[in-house]
Simulated assay, not measured.
Amino acid sequence: MCKVAILERFTLLGAGIKSILQQYNEYEVIVQTETIDSLLKQLKGKSPDVFIVDIVHGDNAGLKPLRKIRRHFPKVPVLLLVSQNYSDCFEEYIRLGVKGFVLNDAEGKDLVEAIHVLSNGGEYFKKKVWEIFRSAIQKRKYQKKDQHILTDREVAVLRLFSRGLSYKEIGASLNISPRTVETHKRNILSKLKINTTADMVRYAYRNQILT
């Protein structure tokens, strides 16, 4: 019996994933929850064989929960539900222990196949995923680096957002107020002509300004 833990922000979608797996006798969903803190709390004393994490409906490109999962369960493989909009982060996802990607337009049978592969020690990267990954690397290679339009403080704020920190945590780290952090974020979004925190994370990875 393969024990599965599901992290899905939307309860209905999580129930849908669980329903797919319940059609197969070899899978047992031991946890299905919406937040990483709830996931870790419910898993006390338990250890799944595979994590399923939906990045598409997460915050900060899903990096913060993935780091927590890796810290608490370093040997348990993670299967990521993802869209190609996050292709710039694929490399970091792999570094954080992701062993397989299932695109959000895939069928239920692809999900089951991926879980089977991961639970048996393998990796699940379909041809389409590698094509998207290669395209993102090529784009990053030739993209003009324009980070000079950001101030040093804005780069620092961008870097901390990309690590999954909250407004309060960033403010404490830089000795500024959360309101000032919010102002810096608005300026970053405006200067880079992007709209969301996930866009900021992707920009940071593309331009290698996380360290």
Score class of each variant (00 low, 15 high):
1 M>F: 14
1 M>S: 15
2 C>Y: 15
2 C>G: 06
4 V>C: 01
4 V>Q: 08
5 A>R: 05
7 L>M: 14
8 E>I: 04
9 R>F: 15
9 R>N: 15
11 T>D: 09
13 L>Y: 15
16 G>E: 12
17 I>Y: 14
17 I>R: 12
19 S>A: 14
20 I>N: 08
21 L>A: 12
21 L>Y: 09
25 N>Y: 14
26 E>A: 10
28 E>V: 12
29 V>M: 07
31 V>L: 05
31 V>P: 02
31 V>T: 11
32 Q>W: 09
33 T>A: 02
34 E>L: 03
35 T>K: 08
35 T>Q: 05
36 I>P: 03
36 I>G: 01
40 L>F: 14
40 L>T: 14
43 L>R: 05
44 K>P: 07
44 K>G: 05
44 K>Q: 09
45 G>C: 02
46 K>Y: 07
47 S>W: 01
49 D>V: 02
49 D>Q: 05
49 D>I: 06
49 D>R: 04
49 D>H: 10
51 F>W: 01
52 I>G: 00
54 D>N: 13
55 I>L: 10
59 D>P: 02
61 A>M: 09
63 L>C: 04
64 K>H: 07
64 K>Y: 10
68 K>A: 05
72 H>W: 04
74 P>T: 10
75 K>E: 10
77 P>Y: 10
78 V>Q: 05
78 V>I: 08
80 L>T: 12
84 Q>R: 06
85 N>Y: 05
86 Y>T: 06
87 S>Q: 04
91 E>Y: 00
92 E>C: 02
92 E>D: 02
95 R>L: 01
95 R>P: 00
96 L>H: 01
99 K>H: 15
100 G>L: 04
104 N>R: 12
107 E>G: 13
114 A>V: 12
114 A>S: 09
117 V>N: 09
118 L>C: 11
120 N>R: 14
130 W>P: 08
130 W>V: 13
138 Q>Y: 15
144 K>I: 15
144 K>F: 14
146 D>R: 15
152 D>C: 00
153 R>D: 10
153 R>Y: 03
155 V>T: 13
156 A>E: 13
157 V>L: 06
157 V>S: 01
160 L>D: 12
163 R>V: 11
164 G>M: 10
165 L>I: 00
171 G>Y: 01
174 L>G: 03
176 I>Q: 02
179 R>T: 07
180 T>L: 02
185 K>V: 08
188 I>N: 01
189 L>Q: 00
190 S>E: 09
194 I>R: 03
195 N>P: 01
197 T>Y: 04
197 T>K: 06
199 D>H: 07
201 V>K: 03
203 Y>W: 11
207 N>C: 02
210 L>H: 06
211 T>Y: 10
